[in-house]
Design a protein around this nucleic acid. Structure first.
Lengths: 341, 341
DNA sequence: TTGATTTAAGCAACCGGTTGCATAAATGTT
DNA sequence: AACATTTATGCAACCGGTTGCTTAAATCAA
């Protein structure tokens, strides 16, 4: 069908191996021959067949991305495109390709991963989450393939490369930010302890409160899905308490927007009646009304560093398993203010 | 290194070809042999090497996705994850993998595409946009690879499979929706005629206005980027006109949110002072304040259908080049109301 | 000029599967 | 029992590159 290395070789009166070496610009080939072969490759419209190369070199130059793919529960909307962008940037630079899992359920995602790894379709894997009772990471560990987790692995974290924020610290800072405004009745939303990030942030929140000598009622700790109705209900439950919170910590901007609307419906003003601090610092936080004070977790950077680590690891599989922490920074806007007394 | 078909064959005292046929569950092999070989495969932990299969079968079971990858300009945030989800669903079902372009600039994206297609890394391509002066589609056409465009191709559209909304119609309906509320001074934002979708919707808008016998000032037609400052500026320009519009058509929910905020800052109320209709019907439109009336373009479905068409086309490359139109539907919420007289 | 050394190119095995064709074994027919 | 069919398996070429090793040619040293 298409032009192969042999066709080129025949036309150029050289051996296929010579053509192959021309392609990889081997120093074993003279400039003269290289020119000749290149000319003929162009004439014939030769194009390298990557699959053949992959098979021979046993290297795919492809990294697999394992992601939760379901609608709501998954990554906060903005997370996914942004982290992909970060990964892409690096891949593009080092000429790697990206392959995605397509599964919806945990089972499917696991199978996709096995197919990628066992089937030798990728050189390395980036896992976009860290979750309890997850089968993917243990499998990867056992398989020996290079991989990086975005988020802090819950097992053998010393033995696994990961890229993460310091979520405990980030939540602590967010909490302290509110505490410094005089708030003491602070509710924490997003306590999904299935995912490591949820647990870590909850811990940070609790620590900050304890450091300040404050008790936290369980009624102030809420989980939430990425769902308007549920979000509104959570806000309602909090505000209907005998002692409603005066400040809210919310795990992402979209949920914060939901809260904002929900509070508005009850005629509660942000920040005058309730202060809100959220995570992600996406464009939503910039344009909501009022603009949200939000913790920038630097999603692009997370992806970028993860890809960076992974490619290093692929090039030297025995390297020291480092982990990198991406700093977070609070972007102050107008959703927090001093507690009215 | 790992277990190959030959290792299994040796251990089972059969030929490699037999093992291969066992794997593909060929009717040529007896049940007895199948059981025996399967048992040994399990014992040895055999795993198919996909690259070898790809090379031999000349089929990758992978589809490539060509996307604009840059931050702002690109797809409205929510579009990308949602369309991927739609594509994934189908791919998962038919056991296809997904490969992404990683490039940022048009040039890089084009090169990524060539590498995918020329390098035989994919069986087909989905292009996530339709743009003027685009080199990708002509290249794909020439290459002969099966591909589907999401959006209406600007060249040879009879010869190219595509999945799209009827954007002219959608914009017309949105416009009529506002006209029926008595609005006549309607501004259209998002007139980026580089992309087909921008142009089509603009035409729909103009048609609807013309049908109603209304002139449209050029001052009412604005382009906008996915950037808060620019968005606000656009709104400002419109509202500072001697005759400011009473209704706005905005190409996506995030920009509508920007507009909402921008109008709020000028103490203009939505919908009392200005009506807004936006596109995409993302979660933002549901939770903004007020909730936005938005045209649902069914992004998931666009991806789903595109993948569906592509896989059909891969299975039968000579098939009739159909195109499918995904219906749009206006979700009424609270951002539009009758024009005050 | 001759032998040693460097440089350039070719040979052939290999990566790990798939598949058309040949052949052996099993079954059926008369 | 002898031959025609059917069914099950094996042989070997092939997919399109890569690479260790060998060999031929060119350059160098003496």
């Amino acid at each position: 069908m298409s032009v192969t290395i042999k066709d080129v070789a025949a036309r150029a009166n050289v051996a296929p191996s010579t053509v192959s070496r021309v392609i990889s610009d081997s120093p074993l080939i003279s400039e003269k021959t290289k020119r000749k072969v290149h000319k003929i490759m162009d004439e014939m419209g030769y194009q390298l067949n990557y699959n053949a190369r992959i098979l021979a070199q046993k290297s795919t130059k492809t990294i697999g991305i394992v992601m939760k793919n379901s609608t709501k529960e998954s990554m906060h909307n903005t997370f996914f495109p942004e982290v992909i962008r970060g990964i892409s940037a690096l891949c593009s630079k080092y000429d790697f390709s990206i392959s995605l899992t397509t599964g919806e359920s945990e089972e499917e995602i696991f199978n996709d991963t096995v197919k990628m790894v066992g089937g030798k379709r990728v050189d390395g894997i980036i896992v976009l989450y860290s979750k309890k009772d997850d089968k993917v990471v243990p499998y990867l560990l056992e398989s020996g393939i290079p991989f990086v987790v975005i988020g802090k692995p819950l097992i053998e974290s010393g033995n696994i490369m990961f890229v993460d924020n310091d979520n405990v610290q980030a939540a602590k800072e967010a909490t302290n930010y509110l505490l410094n405004f005089g708030h003491e009745k602070i509710a924490y939303i997003g306590a999904d302890t299935e995912f490591e990030v949820g647990e870590a942030r909850l811990n940070g929140f609790l620590q900050a409160m304890r450091d300040k000598g404050l008790d936290v009622s369980n009624a102030y700790i809420k989980d939430t899905q990425m769902d308007p109705n549920h979000g509104k209900q959570v806000v309602a439950e909090l505000m209907d308490l005998a002692e409603p919170p005066t400040a809210l910590i919310i795990p992402n901007d979209l949920n914060a927007l939901i809260a904002l609307t929900s509070l508005g419906e009850r005629n509660l003003k942000v920040p005058d009646d309730v202060s809100i601090i959220s995570f992600n610092n996406s464009m939503i936080s910039e344009v909501s009304n009022p603009p949200l004070t939000s913790v920038d977790i630097q999603i692009f950077q997370l992806g970028h560093e993860a890809a960076n680590c992974l490619i290093e690891l692929i090039n030297d599989p025995d390297m020291f398993k480092k982990s990198v922490i991406i700093p977070t920074v609070i972007h102050e806007r107008s959703s927090c203010t001093t507690l009215k007394v």
